[in-house]
Nucleic acid binder design. Structure first.
Lengths: 212, 212
DNA sequence: GGTTGATTTGAACGCCCGTTTAGTTAGCAT
DNA sequence: ATGCTAACTAAACGGGCGTTCAAATCAACC
């Protein structure tokens, strides 16, 4: 009893990562043992070490790959003109992308503290990169006078936290469709930062007065 | 070597809970051992069982006590008149209360899945009760026409997620003061749900037209 | 069809886990 | 001072942990 019939690293490798993802998301990194992961794959614990140097790398690879996917996908997303529409695009993209990968999103938020310091820093940089793409939109909107934002960094974090919240309750067969949720959240995000018309008029008036 | 000098259950009991809170928040429930908690208290592992029936209860008691504190504190908070001001009061209360208890908040969000089913349900009910107090404000505002909310339940969750986000980055000695953060967040929350003036005028016009 | 290398087993390593228990000491009332 | 009880230690229980490794089996190429 050693090598299994039909076994191949191209098959087992992805299955190991899938099992780890599933179990980490369900029970948490610290609560899941290598033996449980192996059982999910249908293999003995020792065999896992052909596909990962250790348990920590298994977690880190999952988190890093997910963040890279997010960054690449946003890069590839078609951006409309102007910060208002870009904010809507970002909100909708974020909701959609995250709802399609509930397990990755979950562990990306819950298991960061189980990363060793270097791995943690690497992921923090990727996350900041993603946040910067939203903050860029807010800054541009502020410069153009279409957004009324007190502090772009803080607002960025607040918006992302709000959008992330969706993953904690959304169920694909629930009361609300994905399209509806996208619409409601992007609408809320827009309203939270947009310059109110009365305030825009007031500023315009002030500017004219200052010019006289 | 048995009983320590100056030892008393009134002292050790709270110290056990404090150590558990600190360590659970820092490393996660599953990653912390009873021996680590005991070491933090300055006692042997066996002694912990004078203060908790088991590790699970230690976690549950922390979470339940925290949620009860939240509910009691909001109950005791002085409520102004009208949903707009009440939303601001709620936002500011939530931010302030949660920033004063970062560890409790952290474990309340991270460790729910480590609760046994019955304990989980108990806490879920308390959390829903808290959410309902916010949803009540949103509903009232919608009835009075001062809020423009698509779905009160969803909006409730979105706002709470946004407000909770503050706990993941706020540092007491950071760039922004607590008062400033309170102000920014409550302002954003208000703008996200408030009826825009132009829309209110439009509705009023529609109502008049329908009356003729 | 035999050889080689990829894939996996099964057992073992030392260590730590949550919890129980018998025994020991400190605080306190009498 | 004595006795009693609350508080704690030290050791042990069975079990699971992450990881390693020699041996065994299968896939693939000659």
């Amino acid at each position: 009893m050693a090598r299994k019939t039909g076994s191949h690293s191209d098959i087992t490798g992805p299955r190991v990562r899938a099992a780890a993802l599933k179990l980490f998301a369900a029970h948490g990194f610290a609560a899941v043992s290598m033996r449980q992961i192996a059982a999910e794959v249908g293999v003995q614990a020792g065999a896992l070490y052909l596909y990962t140097p250790d348990k920590q790398s298994l977690l880190f690879d999952l988190l890093r790959d997910h963040m890279q996917e997010v960054l690449d996908a946003w890069e590839a997303e078609e951006k409309p003109e102007g910060p208002v529409k870009q904010l809507e695009t970002f909100s909708r993209f974020h909701i959609r992308f995250h709802l399609e990968r509930p397990e990755q999103v979950f562990i990306s938020y819950m298991e960061l503290r189980n990363l060793e310091p270097d791995n943690f820093k690497a992921l923090e940089n990727m996350r900041r990169q993603y946040e910067n793409s939203l903050e860029g939109i807010l800054k541009q909107g502020q410069d153009e006078g279409v957004f009324d934002v007190d502090d772009t960094k803080l607002t960025t974090l607040a918006l992302i936290a709000m959008l992330n919240g969706v993953t904690s309750w959304y169920k694909p067969d629930g009361r609300l469709s994905l399209a509806r949720v996208e619409a409601i959240y992007s609408d809320m995000a827009g309203k939270a930062v947009r310059m109110p018309r009365w305030k825009a008029r007031q500023r315009k008036a002030e500017a004219q007065q200052a010019a006289e």
